[in-house]
Amino acid sequence: MKIAFINSPLGITKIEGDENGIAVISVLSEGEVTTKIPLELKEAVKQLQDYFEGKRTNFDFKLNPKGTDFQQKVWQELLKIPFGKTMSYMDLSKKLGDVKAIRAVASANGKNPLWIVVPCHRVIGTDGSLTGYAGGLWRKKWLLEHENPTTQQSLF
């Protein structure tokens, strides 16, 4: 497994993967930035940097997250949430076919190993609140504002 660390506006981003795809993207509060990016990670690094610079709204590098069948199903559904949009945990549970599975869906959402790329930050409370986020609610708020220009203040 190859690893790279890059700077982002939200901390140091850790990217792990190999020729089979990217398995983990996470955020750390501190760390050393990688000076030589492994070939297997270069496309993911480029696309993440483009995202943070506001030049990219989707990702198309190969993913290879590890998780249970249920977690994989939830993560696949998360990938369908469009850039700049949000969905409630209840709506996500309904899309997966079981409103009673809301806690299991929320748990799978919290175990998402691919920060930003599998957009768990786009899932909010039914009342619109920013509920739980492994990276901290301030990061979730930043990401949602970054993705929705209508919530950002105009520079003109």
Rank of each mutant, 00 (worst) to 15 (best):
M1W: 06
K2C: 08
I3W: 05
F5I: 02
N7G: 10
P9A: 11
P9F: 09
G11V: 13
G11T: 14
I12G: 07
T13N: 00
T13G: 00
I15H: 04
I15C: 09
D18L: 04
E19R: 08
E19H: 06
N20D: 08
G21R: 10
A23S: 13
V24A: 02
S26R: 14
L28Q: 15
E30Q: 12
E30T: 10
E30I: 03
E32L: 05
V33S: 01
V33W: 01
T35M: 04
K36S: 15
I37N: 09
P38L: 11
K42P: 01
E43Y: 10
A44R: 05
A44E: 02
V45F: 09
K46E: 07
Q47Y: 11
Q47N: 06
Q49C: 01
Q49M: 04
D50S: 08
Y51G: 00
G54Y: 04
F59D: 10
K62P: 05
P65T: 12
K66P: 03
Q72L: 08
V74C: 03
E77P: 04
E77H: 02
E77Y: 01
E77M: 03
L78G: 11
L78K: 01
L79Y: 03
L79N: 06
I81D: 00
F83A: 01
F83C: 03
F83K: 01
G84C: 04
K85G: 00
Y89G: 13
Y89L: 06
D91K: 13
D91L: 06
L92N: 01
S93L: 07
S93C: 10
K94D: 02
K95H: 04
K100L: 01
K100A: 00
R103I: 06
R103T: 12
A104Y: 12
A104H: 12
A104Q: 09
V105T: 05
A108Q: 03
N109A: 01
G110I: 05
K111D: 03
N112C: 13
N112Y: 04
L114P: 02
V117L: 04
P119M: 00
V123D: 05
V123P: 07
V123A: 04
I124V: 14
T126S: 07
D127T: 13
D127E: 12
G128F: 02
L130N: 13
T131Y: 11
Y133I: 07
A134K: 13
A134M: 07
A134T: 14
G136E: 02
G136R: 07
L137D: 07
R139H: 13
R139T: 09
K140H: 07
W142K: 15
L144C: 08
E145M: 15
E147G: 14
E147N: 14
N148Q: 11
N148K: 14
P149E: 15
T151I: 15
Q152I: 14
Q153R: 15
S154H: 14
L155I: 15
L155G: 14
F156D: 15
